[in-house]
Simulated scan of single mutants.
Amino acid sequence: MHRGLVHVLAWSLATGAAATLSWWGVHTVMAGTAYDPPRALPITAAEAKAKEPSPTASATRGPAAPPSAPAASATPSRTSATPRPPASAPAARTTPSPTATAAGRVESYDTDGGRVVFDLGPAAATLVSATPGTGWSMQVWKTASWIRVEFTSGADRVSVICTWHDGPPRVEVGDY
């Protein structure tokens, strides 16, 4: 009986040591590759107004009036019914008004593969968020002087590259 108890104790100690060593190794590797948590982007007044819910019809009132035609100054939005641009055309639509922050300006780049948001400072940039579209996958590479986000879906490939090695950050979008 004493011999069996020694074997169980030795097995328990070895298993605990192996699990601790494995956790420490995985934690060390993941700590070096994890990204900063995404920051919330401020919503402009125009975006907030566009997102307000429309009044709904109630049982005691008649149906709500149909929405008025959009103003000429409204920015057209991209829908799924919009045809894809030809393969030779760039696949990006840049949000027209960047948002200023203490570190720089936040700019969003919408592509067929997804959306990428950068915080562009005077001498460097940081990736705020990257979200692949439905049916697309994403991969991110970072160095000290550039960030590349690549969206892939089958043979389709769209890259968003931000570089700042020889001046202020600049962003290029295309099928590379």
Rank of each mutant, 00 (worst) to 15 (best):
R115M: 00
G154S: 02
A71P: 08
T101M: 05
A65G: 03
M138P: 01
H2K: 03
P76V: 05
T134G: 06
T163N: 09
Q139W: 06
V171H: 04
E47I: 05
R115A: 00
S137T: 09
T60D: 06
T143R: 15
S80E: 11
E52N: 06
D156V: 00
H7K: 15
S129T: 09
E47M: 05
P42L: 14
R84I: 06
T143C: 13
V116E: 02
P132M: 08
R148V: 10
A74W: 12
R105Q: 12
A130V: 09
L21V: 13
T60V: 11
K51D: 10
A31R: 15
W11D: 14
I147V: 05
R39F: 05
R84S: 08
V149K: 03
A18Y: 11
T75D: 08
P132L: 05
A34Q: 12
G167H: 00
I147Q: 02
S58V: 13
A40K: 11
S159R: 09
T79M: 12
R39G: 02
A92T: 04
F151W: 02
W164N: 03
G25I: 01
W23C: 11
S97C: 04
D110F: 04
P67G: 12
P53K: 09
A87C: 03
A124C: 06
I43R: 15
V106P: 06
P85Y: 14
